[in-house]
Amino acid sequence: MAKKNESSLIEYDPLAWMNTEEKPTDVVAILPKQAPDLESLASDALSAKVILQATQSIQNVMQLHEQLVDILRNTSDTIEVDASAITACDTATMQLFVVLKQEMLQLERNLVFDFPSDKFVEAADLLGVSSMLGVDKSAAGFF
């Protein structure tokens, strides 16, 4: 988090991430590999990014759950989920995202799905949670 000059009128610096090359967020984790090393996660991280692999199912939902809980503990503001590569996403995963979204709302934090794939949007639609998750159909499927 950017430091505040004592006399400055700007406390939080939304552009601070631009000082880091390429990565717009503080953490990038790849699933469903081994549990990610989150030690490097700064305690005051403003946002974290989770990149989902093509298939998300009940077989790896526990691992995703653990990772999200870790991030939630260490992140103060936003979790970005990159769902652009999803080709299959089951109910268990969607339920996890619904619970996470509710938790984030209670904590006044943000859960954002970046450019979700068509399949991800389709799954969210099918379960009636696309609106709740804020999945943007119009921006889906580009990446």
Partner: peptide
């Protein structure tokens, strides 16, 4: 104003994604 900075941050993230892809 401050909220414009916040909006710019979001815009730049979008732009970076498009640049990458």
């Amino acid at each position: 104003d401050f909220m414009a900075l916040q909006g710019l941050s979001h815009l730049m993230e979008t732009i970076r994604k498009f640049e990458k892809v």
